[in-house]
Design a protein around this nucleic acid. Structure first.
Lengths: 336, 336
DNA sequence: CACTGCTGTGAGACCGTTCCCACATGGGAC
DNA sequence: GTCCCATGTGGGAACGGTCTCACAGCAGTG
């Protein structure tokens, strides 16, 4: 790593490092001769400014930490959170930030501390964060935004979807297509989004005059494909004998897991059973039959989070709390 | 960001910053009294060492850059590369590195330069890198390893799978189960892995005495689900009339795309057609019917890459070129 | 001619650490 | 009593930049 430094450039150009610094940054005066000389040397020696040294004096690293709090699945290959990360990466590059990515399986603040030591300009927190982690981070005065967190916290910028509204859309779609007996797989109710999706769904069902006794609600311990499959397998008899014509799961992975079991039992989808998921992960469109679902714009979440964080970092006045993202029903092959 | 500094701790403890530094690092002598006092203050003031300043003097940032060169899909949500990244994240945390993640769509060295400016200790390069990018990085003397790159480059540590062997395994599996006419969807031949998978497959087929005229080979422009679907749709007549009983695609996404089209035409899998993919992405086991495939251990790739890079960074002598990962056939529902 | 303001430059402090070196004290060996 | 060594401490340079300040030259103005 014997990269040339500003001092080396200055020495060779016969000027002071102040002059070189001025020329590089474009602030302040410099003569055309000095400019040519220095710029030529920069090109010749392949000088790359040292971002570490810059951070040292400017007290800004231009780095952002993305912390994913999950116990089950890793981050990047997660079908939903992975998309958020992608969008974060893209938007961050546009705004000249670099991104540290970390997963925290302990749900502690160990990794948050690590990011603090690295002196990131800000943090993006995703999924299941605990109140104490939030408090911890707040303590250090590091700007941060939450994305799809498990709970809302007062005063914290939190980017979420209109999950309750989405649940309502599912109910409407199913009731309008004539379904009366609906089987529901509900993801962890400790998580805000699963909770609201279920609530919106149930409220709407009730308004349609369908008795709750006509809906069977299974609660899932995790929100994975395997869990969906397992629940369906376990409840198969109840499902078959109950005369259910529709299945709603509070996310796509649960829905597809259950659907896979149904297909293995030669249940025809959608002829015999209609299935609706939630999120619109990439696989939803690829599955066979493709899955009707509520699209949550993960990309938009990622983009917004960086955008808002950038405003917080730059200490812009009155950064507005973002409005919730509007979900959209996407009808595919799994419902009729 | 008014975190306390070492100087502040020193002032309050009534000692010099040298002493504080010694106590924190554990190098050199210090009296129990000084130690207690300083450690107490660190706890009380929630002192977090400044990694930027440390990097400044130690000339080591303990940061690693992950560069993914792709034109089509983003990184994190990529079903195969995402898994590599996950493993990298995990292993890096274990070895006390932080990870910068970047995607480069231009296939230029813009993002490599960016990482150089950030003075990462090393780079992990994934997928389609060009020779000139490699040269560029080599120029700066930054340690790096390649993972599943499009081509091998002399002297560069490159972690890959035994793709040719995997292709052979596919051929054996299909011929042993009695298939004679096989339809092949071959991903971009400019990429090492797709090229070798096809080659291994064809070599083995030929050895089994099957004429090449019995195999139809379709070349795919990309290696995506959509491309697989599209190719199958386009070649549907040829496929049906050709009497093919098996389909091999050089990766899972292509295979599942094609499979989805077949299912939509009410082709029964595996009764009428057997399908084999390559990679064993998560979705392969979830698809219905689940996909028989060759497992490439993406996790192992990620872990190894960090491990090797760490050795390069620490300038260990004779770091050995890793042997190629051994693939494994995983038989699922899509073949019989 | 004195004053002002623009252009151009360099010296040096500073960011928060680490680490080398100097130095002081005290006990044990000779 | 002298010397040596272990223990404990502080001063200050260095890492590679940015930025403030001082200062010099020179043209324009009244």
């Amino acid at each position: 790593m014997d990269n040339p430094t500003i001092k080396e450039i200055a020495r060779r150009a016969g000027v002071s490092k102040s002059t070189v610094s001025r020329i590089i940054s474009g602030n302040g005066y410099s003569s055309p001769e000095a400019r040519n000389k220095v710029l030529g040397l920069i090109e010749e020696l392949q000088y790359k400014p040292n971002a570490v040294a810059r951070a040292m004096v400017s007290q800004r690293t231009h780095n952002i930490g993305v912390l994913l709090y999950r116990r089950d699945l890793p981050i990047a290959s997660h079908p939903f959170y992975g998309k958020i990360v992608d969008a974060v990466l893209l938007e961050a590059a546009r705004l000249n930030y670099s991104i540290f990515v970390t997963t925290d399986h302990d749900m502690s603040y160990r990794s948050a501390d690590f990011m603090i030591e690295k002196r990131v300009d800000g943090l993006i927190l995703i999924s299941r964060l605990q109140q104490n982690v939030i408090d911890h981070i707040t303590n250090f005065g590091i700007p941060f935004v939450m994305v799809n967190g498990s709970t809302d916290v007062d005063g914290v910028i939190h980017i979420v979807n209109q999950d309750e509204e989405g649940g309502r859309m599912v109910a409407e779609h199913l009731t309008q297509t004539g379904h009366k007996r609906i089987f529901v797989i509900a993801g962890p109710q400790s998580h805000r989004s699963h909770h609201l999706r279920l609530r919106g769904f149930l409220t709407s069902i009730r308004q349609s005059g369908i008795q709750e006794s006509n809906a069977s609600i299974q609660s899932a311990g995790t929100s994975t494909f395997g869990e969906g499959y397992e629940i369906m397998r376990r409840e198969w008899n109840q499902f078959r004998e109950g005369g259910y014509t529709a299945l709603f799961a509070t996310n796509d992975m649960l829905a597809m897991g259950a659907m896979k079991f149904l297909l293995e039992q030669s249940v025809r989808i959608p002829e015999q059973v209609s299935v609706v998921g939630f999120d619109d992960v990439d696989f939803a469109a690829m599955f066979s039959p493709s899955l009707t679902t509520i699209k949550v714009d993960a990309g938009d979440m990622g983009t917004k989070s960086v955008h808002l964080l950038d405003q917080l970092i730059r200490q812009e006045q009155n950064v507005e709390h973002p409005s919730q993202l509007v979900p959209r029903l996407i009808v595919r092959q799994s419902t009729k």
